[in-house]
Nucleic acid binder design. Sequence first.
DNA 1: GGTTGACTTACAGTTAACTCTAAGGTCTAA
DNA 2: TTAGACCTTAGAGTTAACTGTAAGTCAACC
Lengths: 126, 126
Amino acid sequence: MGYSIKTISQKTGLSQYTLRYYEREGVLPEVSRDEHGNRCFHDEDLELLSLIRCLKDTGMPIAEIKQFVSLEREGREALSEQCKLLEAHKRQIEEKIQFFQSFARKIDHKIAYFHSLEQESKAELK
Amino acid sequence: MGYSIKTISQKTGLSQYTLRYYEREGVLPEVSRDEHGNRCFHDEDLELLSLIRCLKDTGMPIAEIKQFVSLEREGREALSEQCKLLEAHKRQIEEKIQFFQSFARKIDHKIAYFHSLEQESKAELK
DNA sequence: GGTTGACTTACAGTTAACTCTAAGGTCTAA
DNA sequence: TTAGACCTTAGAGTTAACTGTAAGTCAACC
């Protein structure tokens, strides 16, 4: 019989506000309703949301996620299109990882430099 | 005799608007002026800006960068404080790298799954 | 000596991604 | 039967980080 918005909010870590916002904006396809008009999420929604989180947290803007999700509705004809999007995004993630690693090294150098300054200061006090 | 804002904008890739905004907000310490009141950047500014870019691009909010930079003015007493900030940030970058790597794998699985669906579709057409 | 171009300030506007409020419906437990 | 917990919508408000505009100064070129 499906999950309430509260449950999905807890399971995904996205606020109820955000879930409604995502549906409004078309990031999430229309969620089905129960007899009272309340949202009724299913396992497919949960699965899609997990992919959406993944895309979002790796820096894909929601406009682009929306595009990806809208291809979902077009079925098999759109599969290669979706693959292209994912592959392009994966390359971006990999670039980001490279960036982050080089930044981490840079920060390391800065930290080492700061430590050497501290040692100097201590030496002066003697 | 120092660099103009235009030069610095080109060297750092930050817009002139952004550079002024950073100074206004205290992300950048007060930049010295020439006899006409125009900003006159020096190599130290350039160096600090390169660290600022690095912190920003690895996800540090500018409010926190501001805090880090304000410690700069306090000289040697603040060094260990600055180190702590950098070290904490480095840990965050490393966590992000982990995250990104696991997300990249997840996207890989999705791509593989999509490819298998495509193969299926082709097989059906025979 | 007028125009062009780079700069200045103060302040208003924009964008993305939420986040909240108001006003209301429905169900359950005391 | 009423208080409380849940949900709904429409639409307004917030936040971070810029980005743009307006009005003005100054120097260099034609």
